[in-house]
Write a protein that binds this DNA or RNA. Sequence first.
DNA 1: GGGACGATGTAT
DNA 2: TACATCGTCCCT
Length: 180
Amino acid sequence: MKPLPRGFAARDTVEVARALLGQLLVHEVDGVARVGRIVETEAYLGPHDLACHSSKGRTARTEVMFGPPGYAYVFLVYGMHHCVNVVTGQGAAVLIRAVEPLEGFGAGARGDGPGRLTRSMGITRAQQGLPLDLKPLFLARGRSVSRIGRSARIGVDFAGSWARRQLRFFDAQSPHVSQG
DNA sequence: GGGACGATGTAT
DNA sequence: TACATCGTCCCT
């Protein structure tokens, strides 16, 4: 399986959020590939976006978001769930919220939800800052999405008018999109 | 040093 | 609708 070029993420963040739909997220654990087809994403536009972690300032945690595009930003929420993002640069990133399990998922492991997919694919802060065009964690070409749905982002009600922006994108035909 | 607060998931 | 659970951020 051939990784997408790192430059895939070096575009407008909304464009990347849409282009990621249908592509594959691959994590090799102990030489075994876990493959999910991305069916739900959210765009976090940068320091001016009050829902974006980088809006709280440039800190050790968010530093990778200010680096070059095409790297993984992984964080822990609620003390127990990891979330994985594709950095697009300038403090912006795309959160992967759901994948369709294709390969290497354990029995009963699910991909619907940002915390579920990282758990199922073995992604933790150990993968923070990894380039997404090299093993063990990378993006690859998948089957394109025929209809893209759009909505406000999930769980960012604190962000004022930014909470209402339509920055969540999903495969309208996929049963693996999260409930939100 | 300490307290408030999550880009969630699951059980009640 | 309650709550588990802990890293991060800022000291309100």
